[in-house]
């Protein structure tokens, strides 16, 4: 059975349909890509899944139970972690402080939370930055901190929102490696990404939207060859040069 099922999801901001009747299912263990041009409603979809903003209509099922209307922190406890496209470091806390605070999602004592934070920072290659203030990290470090903080809540499903944006080529390879290692831990991943190199190489399946509506779904090959996707997404990018 699907781990996450998004059913006829609709989100309106006033008259603007940011997400319009979108449906998809994510199976356990897969990396599921969500693509679409700027402003097509990808981040809004994430915000609806963890009830960061309430949905207008439709429903969302996690492990076959509706999570519609649950508080954001409850959804995190159920096992859905997320990162933010516009990163939200806890600026005046240390890197390890950020992750420790997050680890308390599953444990109660300082020692357990610290130990978990060490493990996660090591996993994300952030251990040498652990005592720096979060605000002193460069953008690439902040993106990894977002991931580390989400991982520390021990999610079964991880939502990654453009974690590769703004990274250079070697950093990109590291990011791809990190995502694969997360998948190998048995965590299911829903990922938004603009960079084709990333999304096409790691996704098992891809769902494409434009103006809030589904235009295609399938393997990376199928989606990349879909005429609507080429026109709406790749076309626009090629046209821009």
């Amino acid at each position: 059975m699907a781990l996450l099922e998004v059913k006829k999801l609709t989100k309106a901001f006033g008259g603007l349909m940011a997400v319009n009747n979108v449906t998809f299912k994510i199976e356990r263990g897969e990396i599921f890509g969500l693509i679409g041009p700027n402003g097509s409603g990808k981040t809004t979809t994430f915000n609806c899944i963890n009830n960061f903003s309430p949905i207008t209509s439709g429903d969302i099922f996690f492990k076959e139970k509706s999570i519609k209307g649950l508080k954001t922190h409850k959804i995190c406890h159920l096992g859905i972690g997320r990162t933010f496209q516009v990163v939200k470091p806890l600026s005046r806390m240390t890197v390890i402080g950020n992750v420790t605070a997050s680890a308390f999602c599953r444990v109660n004592t300082i020692k357990e939370a610290r130990d978990e934070a060490y493990r996660v920072l090591d996993f994300c290659n952030l251990l040498k930055e652990k005592d720096k203030l979060a605000k002193s990290l460069p953008i690439e470090g902040r993106k990894r901190l977002e991931i580390a903080r989400a991982l520390a809540t021990k999610p079964e499903l991880l939502l990654l929102d453009e974690i590769a944006a703004g990274l250079n080529l070697s950093e990109l390879d590291e990011a791809i490696d990190l995502i694969k290692r997360i998948r190998d831990k048995g965590i299911t991943i829903l990922i938004i990404e603009h960079i084709m190199k990333v999304i096409m190489t790691i996704s098992d399946r891809i769902h494409a939207i434009n103006f809030g509506q589904t235009i295609a779904e399938g393997t990376p090959q199928e989606v990349a060859n879909n005429p609507e996707v080429i026109e709406a997404y790749l076309g626009a990018e090629y046209a821009q040069g």
Partner: peptide, 10 residues
């Protein structure tokens, strides 16, 4: 530091 991040951290 960030109420929204905190909420998303559970």
């Amino acid at each position: 530091e960030d109420q929204d991040a905190a909420e998303s951290m559970g």
